[in-house]
Design a protein around this nucleic acid. Structure first.
Length: 328
DNA sequence: AAGCGGAGCAACCGCGCACCT
DNA sequence: GAGGTGCGCGGTTGCTCCGCT
């Protein structure tokens, strides 16, 4: 990849924009539109590179920019979306009209720093979260849980394992009656196979992971308050990226034997798997799981709309999910 | 009042992707 | 297909402001 020619010019100005420059840019774009950004500075009489003009316009000068404090609703949405898509600020911003990715990013960075400085609520139940990254994720999850207090909270989450782990650790999380969790999606074939396989081999937990075939199509995991004591009555599992499998299974799988061959590799569908499946299954092996945590019931609700082709990795689809989300 | 440090935020940098030639 | 260019995005930097000592 070569350098961008517009940014190599010696005479381009950098640093803060003056009001005169702002005015020139606004005047030009409002009359001509921006078209090709690399041509904007020349045509607008600015000694800036096109990139700089674009950034200034998008992040500051656009007429539809909303400034000022983030509302609690916006905060919640940011938290939820960040849980779902991570640091994809542009995607998050697309769900917050008038807010820019830069603004959200800055807000998150300062906000998260502030929150993390506060001593986190010590967990009453101890589970081996020794890894630093896991601790960070755990903190983030706790943060989300502590922050979101409405009755019907929605979590869009990538770190499904962390959250489910937290759920299992902390019964107070179940105090909210209808919490919904969205997970990023990916191929579920192998996971479904594993779960099916594991379920078939489980004698004591036949009710677990019922209807695992639905894993391929559904996207929501609903926690029902009725089932307190760390038991989830109605759970909808959904498309998950393979990256999340380990922690998910870690938290959900009942204490069953995962079939392995002599090389300690996982056997799924008669085939040996020595990839991620082994990673998570090894964690499963060592984790203490409550046998009655999860029930996978037949899906009887719908997120609304046609989500056959949902690709949660795109903001549009996430927007679709959000907009079609049923009011509970 | 001056110095210092942290918070907030605007802007830059570097990379990846898409498109065009 | 390869190279050039434009755009968009996430990460980072550095400036300004403000509170504290």
């Amino acid at each position: 990849m070569g350098h961008h020619s517009c940014c190599n010019q010696q005479k381009v100005k950098r640093g803060l924009w003056s009001p005169e420059e702002d005015e020139k840019l606004i005047r030009y774009i409002t009359t001509h539109g921006y078209g090709c950004w690399s041509e904007v500075p020349q045509k607008a009489g600015l000694q800036r590179c096109g990139k700089s003009c674009r950034l200034r316009w998008i992040n500051y000068l656009r007429p539809d920019i909303r400034r000022g404090r983030f509302t609690p609703e916006e905060e919640k949405l940011i938290i939820s979306l960040h849980g779902a898509v991570g640091n994809r600020w542009a995607h998050i911003a697309s769900h917050l009209p008038g807010r820019t990715d830069n603004e959200i990013k800055n807000y998150w960075n300062s906000w998260i720093k502030k929150k993390l400085k506060k001593p986190s609520k010590p967990s009453t139940k101890t589970t081996s979260i020794t890894d630093h990254h896991q601790q960070q994720q755990h903190q983030r999850s706790q943060l989300a849980y502590n922050t979101i207090t409405s009755q019907q909270d929605i979590f869009f989450t990538q770190d499904i394992g962390t959250k489910s782990q937290v759920l299992l650790q902390d019964s107070t999380i179940f105090n909210s009656p209808n919490q919904l969790f969205f997970f990023d999606s990916g191929s579920l074939d192998s996971m479904t196979n594993v779960i099916n396989d594991a379920t078939n081999r489980s004698t004591n937990n036949a009710s677990l992971f019922q209807e695992t075939s639905m894993l391929n199509s559904e996207l929501c995991w609903q926690v029902d308050q009725v089932q307190q004591q760390h038991q989830v009555k109605t759970s909808y599992a959904i498309g998950m990226d393979s990256n999340y499998l380990s922690s998910l299974i870690e938290s959900m799988v009942p204490p069953i034997e995962i079939p392995r061959n002599n090389n300690n590799n996982l056997i799924v569908g008669g085939q040996e798997h020595n990839n991620q499946l082994n990673e998570w299954s090894s964690q499963v092996d060592t984790l203490q799981c409550c046998p009655n945590y999860l029930f996978w019931d037949q899906e009887d609700g719908s997120l609304g709309g046609d989500h056959e082709n949902i690709d949660p990795s795109t903001s549009n689809n996430m927007g679709h999910i959000l907009s079609s989300f049923p009011s509970l």
